[in-house]
Design a protein around this nucleic acid. Sequence first.
DNA 1: CTGAAACATGAATCAGTATTCATGTTTGAC
DNA 2: GTCAAACATGAATACTGATTCATGTTTCAG
Lengths: 208, 208
Amino acid sequence: MGKPAAEAQTAQKSASNQPKTARGEATRKAILTAAERVIGEKGYNDASIGHITSEAGVAQGTFYIYFTTKEQVFSELVLEMGRLVRHTIAEATQDIDNRLEAEEAGLRAFLEFVQAHPDLYRIVQEALFVDPAAYEEYYRTFAEGYRSGLVAAEAAGQISKGDTETRAWALMGIARALGEQLVVFKSEKPIADLVASAYDLIANGIKP
Amino acid sequence: MGKPAAEAQTAQKSASNQPKTARGEATRKAILTAAERVIGEKGYNDASIGHITSEAGVAQGTFYIYFTTKEQVFSELVLEMGRLVRHTIAEATQDIDNRLEAEEAGLRAFLEFVQAHPDLYRIVQEALFVDPAAYEEYYRTFAEGYRSGLVAAEAAGQISKGDTETRAWALMGIARALGEQLVVFKSEKPIADLVASAYDLIANGIKP
DNA sequence: CTGAAACATGAATCAGTATTCATGTTTGAC
DNA sequence: GTCAAACATGAATACTGATTCATGTTTCAG
């Protein structure tokens, strides 16, 4: 994982649903947090508004004060995941000049993040079916930042020459597969070991 | 992608729904094919039984002669994808003794398969949410075959030593990411180019 | 203090759709 | 040819769950 572009606090959500008082703010966040947990655990379709609001400790109708639709809360979670992940990786790699080292640190940060937020991870995966546009945006944004990092590293002679676009996708694929090991397959292997093996593969390949 | 274990034509489906005549056989297959297309396109939840049966050209009730549940037809599609993909790769790599070459040929075969069956590809992804057991089975089976291939190659000195389990997951992750490029992101890049870049990464890594 | 805007409630609405079933039609073994 | 088993039909059932709404309650600017 590399150094994706940092990012501003991003746009205001769509419609007329932003809270105007501290109480509203708190309620909205409670619903969002509950949605993350419930949707992450049960999946989009089995997570009913009732489940979400009861987990949040509010009445069902309250949901529609802050969100116009079940899909909207989902999309917002996908966006949040994107922001958080990019921020996490950017922070973990900001002081590292060498690309290969940055790759290693970024991968570690990503896996730690995923382990800490398993629900968000699953939500992004499900976005392919629930909100394809958000899914594409998530990966495209990520890939672009990644790719430009590789281009710079290539120019600086820190990595060999190659097709940076395909490399970016492949490296993201590795990160994703290892994240899935942790979250979906509940692997017990320590993150440090995963990172070490993946790093060796990324740096040296597997030829004898 | 490597040489997964081959496989027998696999078990009889669960309950009492196997056709007993040629007509029944044909109808069942028509429904299965329609389900593949419709579910692949609309996703599990938006694909109603009505959509599927009308695409298949049969009445709604006919569905329940051959499948006990909407989920069952989905699971069957996931299993089918597993069989097909393993078979395809096994065939593409059976005459190749060198592991790195097998890796290349297997990846190419996988990508060609995925491009030819985009619906099946999406169905497997959605299985994580619709039928997690089938999803796990799909990837576990695949990973085991993959890993044992790597172990053999390592023993034969065809690849460097390393953590074969993590390597297997990482390599599968690369294949998956590139497949997604084709199916989800509609990349125009020729498969040959994707394979060449990925092969270079897998064999040599990216260090300068 | 006060009243209008914000916020909260939860029961009712309303639509979609998986599954069942009573009723035909077709097939193939004998 | 015949008839029981297979197969097919599509309307009816049954249930789930997103969204709305009429009715309170709380907040806070002035």
